[in-house]
Design a protein around this nucleic acid. Structure first.
Lengths: 224, 224
DNA sequence: TCGAAAGAATAGTAATACTATCGAAAGATA
DNA sequence: TATCTTTCGATAGTATTACTATTCTTTCGA
């Protein structure tokens, strides 16, 4: 039984649905690879066009600018994690177990999970770790927020906060704990790799076990 | 008794010490105001030059590029917070009390505290909240880290982690908790303002009391 | 087979992120 | 007082970025 994943994103993020054409899928596939390789600031539509044997103008038919493309990718990521969490917690009634599965999904969603052919989820996670914050740290946050460009992230926060409240209905900060789990996951993977003195954990050869343990330790203590 | 604060920063961050000339201080003063007003991406040396009645080339004599200027400002901020914490916890032996003072300093360092004439610490905090992450989310992290460009932040993390370990020597994640306090502070101030569904607290008229309460609640639970 | 849409090719523009050179002025030194 | 040096303003120039616009060919669906 193969599970088909179809990701649906806010229509304002793109000018033309990239999933529905070979060029569009190529834009997604290679923008992920290139942003990961060169970083978001060095990434340009012109360079991407060269790599996929197309033109700058053609890419502009799909995305208004590179910021919206990043937003598209980041939303994709959170939407995908949300879908996986939904699948993996489907038949589990114990909220404690569900939160553990959520944490595992946040840390290593890309391992052994069904994905989409033209998206390398593991590299996409790298991008979200390194560049994700730039998606919402912009002068246009309020405007973009009103258009629903952060919905995927907010929906996931909502889902996770409900599980938290189920575990401990008296806990006063379910949303803060949820978003903190997201931010902490990605921050500490980044710290372990680049700024190890900012964390206590280490990540050897992409073994994210220590991150997962730390997040479980934090939530257990907080929700007791 | 007036307290004189002198901030010393890594020399690699600038080409010429900006604190020592009127032009240099003008660059600092107005870059803070302009980055806050227009955001980091829209901020350019050309625009800054126009505002301070100088030239692009003159600004380039002080800073290699705008990224290093941001790094300078962010380091300044953490160095300044560190100094305040050192002053305010000086005669306090109880580590629990010291951590509370640290949290208060993180949340509202700029209130009622001595500062530097040409730096608006409150606006500088705004910049660190909105743009701070961009300082270390760059393709050159490793290189910049090796030059000590993140020292101010790491030193503060070190100081705070020691207080945490003093409170509970068995707590396994003192560094992670320290950095988490920093990140959480700034994230949730930002969320409350721009993405309220990502947090449980609210910030009315710059009253950051709820942020402080939340951070105290989290640390208390974690260190018990 | 006709029409519409997709996209390749090309051109062009304003702004950005610099680099380089020159000369005036101001401050320190002898 | 002469001079030496550092500072900085003025000006110019370049490669790249972030777009926009137009035209022409191909393809695909009705």
């Amino acid at each position: 039984m193969a599970i088909e994943i179809k990701i649906t994103l806010n229509e304002g993020l793109y000018l033309k649905e990239p999933q529905e054409s070979a060029l569009g899928r190529n834009i997604i596939r290679h923008s992920i690879l290139m942003i990961d390789e060169f970083g978001f600031e060095a990434f340009t539509f012109k360079k991407l066009a060269r790599v996929i044997n197309s033109t700058e103008a053609s890419i502009y038919r799909y995305f208004e600018n590179k910021h919206l493309l990043l937003l598209y990718l980041v939303n994709w990521y959170w939407e995908w994690v949300h879908t996986l969490i939904a699948i993996n917690t489907m038949n589990i009634s114990d909220p404690n177990k569900r939160l553990k599965i959520i944490i595992r999904s946040l840390v290593s969603a890309s391992e052994d999970n069904p994905g989409v052919e033209f998206v390398n989820e593991s590299i996409l996670h790298s991008i979200v770790i390194s560049e994700g914050g730039k998606a919402y740290h912009t002068k246009d946050v309020d405007d973009e927020n009103s258009k629903g460009f952060f919905m995927s992230y907010k929906n996931l926060a909502n889902t996770v906060s409900k599980v938290i409240s189920e575990i401990n209905p008296k806990f006063k900060y379910p949303y803060a704990l949820a978003t903190n789990l997201f931010e902490m996951t990605n921050n500490h993977i980044y710290f372990a790799k680049h700024l190890p003195r900012l964390t206590d954990i280490s990540v050897k050869e992409n073994d994210l076990n220590e991150v997962e343990k730390m997040l479980n330790y934090f939530t257990d203590k907080l929700l007791k």
